[in-house]
Amino acid sequence: MNVMLNSLPFLMQGLLVTLRVSGIVVAAALVLGVLFGVGLSFGPRWVAWPLRIYSDLIRGLPLLVLIFCVYYMLPLTGLNVTSFWAAVAALAAFQSAHVAEVTRGAVQSIPPGQHEAGKSIGLTFSQRMIYVVFPQALRRFLPPWINTVVSTVQGSALVSLVGIVDLMLAIQQVIGRTFKPMPMYILGALIYFVINYALSLMSRMLEARFAYVRE
């Protein structure tokens, strides 16, 4: 018990790193993912096909492989990034592919008549997206998107394997000092659980709320 309490400050620092990594990745993946998703759904062939291939490739790889690949190979291209940014880049690339899929599903559920109506009053493509498509697609986008946020927090634990002192690695380090693995793992599990469960609940609440909005 004492062990758990004493280690709490150190774990909190790790948690901050986890949250920081997750936060950056979620933001980057949201922006990129929505852009890619729109490009996939509406873009001309020379845009849609590369995006499709990118998305399938990235999602077909284990996240760990992606992280290691980026982490080890990025320096070779001459870019001098810290391990933090290499790991973040890999995780962001991974999640952006998932967010792109979620976007694609949400956006393609909008009937073509909506696009035609938008065109008929003279709206440009981006205006149609912003004022007609996105507001309607939002309800199909949010619940699965929150699931990608949860999966990002889960995936962030893997950055501990390239030396980033996130919550996961902090737990390992405390165990290295105290030799009491079980209480620490339970404590760590609880912290992750609280964060992710809260997010899952939000997602489920949103799903239920939107179910009342008739088509």
């Binding site: 008929s120 009053i121 003279g122 007609v132 507001p135 309607q136």
Partner: peptide
């Protein structure tokens, strides 16, 4: 298109 108006068979109003 802004100068050409169209009314659709299925209305296509913006539901939101």
């Amino acid at each position: 298109r802004a100068d050409i108006g169209m009314v659709f068979q299925l209305f296509n109003l913006f539901p939101h």
